[in-house]
Design a binder for these strands. Structure first.
Lengths: 139, 139
DNA sequence: TTTACACTTGCAAATCATTTGCAAAGATGT
DNA sequence: ACATCTTTGCAAATGATTTGCAAGTGTAAA
């Protein structure tokens, strides 16, 4: 059932549908928090899907606008679904456990930046990351 | 002359002064833009300073609050001086050439985030990065 | 200012996340 | 089904950053 969604998204974005891609996209759509390539791999490896395929899918889905990468300082990249139901937002990353949380909405006038820089630069995306200690690690 | 500044900062932060550290810190203080470990290494290798030492210095200086790391999506980390004359600010990273530029001031009410999250999480830092094409790459 | 001890450094090897080459397996248009 | 272009698994390569270790340097005390 949820599988249909992934299936449709692949169709509507002119992406060749393969078992691997649908499985991986499904995992991303199903998660309420951003996932690392490794976490995704853990979820799909039992279906014989390789880590390299996960990375290739993330690259493709990012280009197609189906997912958004979130870059943590640790060097890890997390991926989250990109759709009307999940617009761009800030993230909180715990420096203690490395966990990531979504914080919506941005809370600042994003458009001001675009206007301010519009004449000099083409801004394609904004990444706002707050760092600190999450509630569970603080205790 | 500028060297004194680096020298003093090391003293006031209780950091053991070594030729390598003073040389590296001096290079960071002298730059108006964030530098990668590799760029820093290019600037100091002629004095026999190793890349590993640059990384170790960046880690130490970050802990001492002398520099701030800026994490680009590319996986590269840039370092910039952290002082009253160079408060936290947003950065622009060109997706085409990988170049980084400083954008001051933030332009959004940073404190709102702290207040909003203060009761649940301890926020220690904010990183705001805009991505796109810089003026030179756009042409 | 010399000594003793701890800290720092260069070098090389190790990590970690991510990417890539390649031959085999799968998808698409005819 | 056929021929062709794409995708995948696997293993090896990359690139940034880190670490082990023995030798060199800084520091506090004698």
């Amino acid at each position: 059932m949820e599988k249909c969604k992934a299936d449709n998204l692949l169709k509507t974005t002119n992406t060749v549908r393969t078992e691997a891609r649908e499985t991986i996209l499904h995992a991303v759509l199903d998660s309420e928090r951003p996932l690392s390539a490794n976490e995704l791999h853990l979820m799909v490896k039992d279906r014989g899907i390789d880590l390299a395929t996960v990375y290739r899918a993330m690259k493709l889905f990012t280009e197609k606008g189906l997912v958004r990468p979130v870059h943590a300082d640790s060097g890890l990249t997390f991926y989250e679904k990109s759709c009307e139901h999940n617009p761009p937002h800030a993230h909180f990353i715990c420096e203690s456990c490395g966990g990531i949380e979504c914080l919506k909405p941005y809370g600042f006038d994003e458009s001001a930046f675009f206007i301010k820089l519009g004449q000099q630069k083409e801004v394609s995306s904004v990444e706002l990351i707050l760092k600190g200690r999450c509630s569970s690690c603080a205790s």
